[in-house]
Design a protein around this nucleic acid. Structure first.
Lengths: 164, 164
DNA sequence: GATCGGAAGTTGAACGTTCACTTAATCGGA
DNA sequence: TCCGATTAAGTGAACGTTCAACTTCCGATC
């Protein structure tokens, strides 16, 4: 124990375990609520959100992957499942012969409209309201954490488009 | 959009997305580091930590599940894999004929000793140091989130032993 | 001292993610 | 213009978690 490692003191330990447990319980809860009430998972919901914010409600697969910080493979599988469920369609992108656009369907948009109150109210009830005036602090810290962990992996060549 | 839902304003939205992305990247990174350097996942590491803190370095399966807030089934599978890997053993508990104890092996303890610097340094570098003086705030918030989400589900009958 | 409800743990299938590999299309110099 | 490198996307197997049974055992009740 006398190596160079600087261990966590008691308070840090309590904070860290609270962090791990809290995030785990929070994400589990948000996921569960979406599944039970709308038959959709949190990752799927996030894909719908990104598509809905993109012009034409469509997005290149790679852009979707970068925005969510998911692997290309993961997005391929997820989009394939969602296409089977009728939430979106795929079509070869015009410009780049390799590219594929994921295009939100009306059913997908309708589902998002129905599901978003569930999600937002969950986020409020289980995090925002509990954090109170400290919520901006938590947000800033976790944004810094993201920035630090993203630095060094330029991900995509497009500036300002990585994991937004 | 004119229902009762109170949507997130711009700053809240930025904070929330930073939170989701930051926790995701952080956990992925800690998991990856443990896997690459020690061939163990973060959930497996957490099991080793709990066992190491328990008297006799052994723990009832249900206690382990409650402490980590994992399902019984999940712990059964994880412990089975770790037993195969020689990190621990299982033996029927004396008192309760239904009970099973997970007992850390010397190899498991040695692995924990080797892996913990990796983990702790990762937590420091990627979260504690970045949060700086705000880290206690983050810890308090996430502990409150945990408490709120645990309230209502007494989990185990043992007071003060739920998901510690 | 039999019976019924519940708790502890396991099992196997289904599902979603990761990983390594493959295919196809584009880009950038020689 | 041709060729090698790179990028976009998909594929299928492996892995870990969830879910719904299921078995075994405890404990309370009458």
């Amino acid at each position: 124990m006398a190596e160079g490692t600087k261990w966590l003191d008691h308070d840090e330990q309590v904070a860290w375990r609270g962090f791990i447990l809290g995030t785990q319980l929070l994400m589990d809860r948000l996921d569960r609520d979406l599944r039970l009430e709308h038959g959709i998972s949190l990752p799927e919901y996030e894909i719908l959100v990104r598509l809905s914010e993109s012009p034409g409600r469509e997005m290149r697969m790679a852009l979707l992957a970068d925005a969510l910080c998911h692997s290309r493979s993961r997005v391929t599988h997820a989009v394939a499942r969602m296409e089977r469920a009728g939430l979106l369609e795929r079509s070869k992108s015009g410009q780049d012969g390799r590219g594929v656009d994921a295009i939100m369907s009306q059913a997908g948009y309708d589902l998002l409209v129905r599901a978003s109150p569930t999600h937002v109210e969950g986020v409020r009830r289980h995090l925002v309201d509990i954090a109170g005036t400290d919520f901006p602090v938590v947000g800033r810290v976790m944004n810094d954490v993201s920035d630090r962990l993203l630095a060094g992996k330029p991900a995509s060549a497009d500036p300002r488009r990585d994991c937004s």
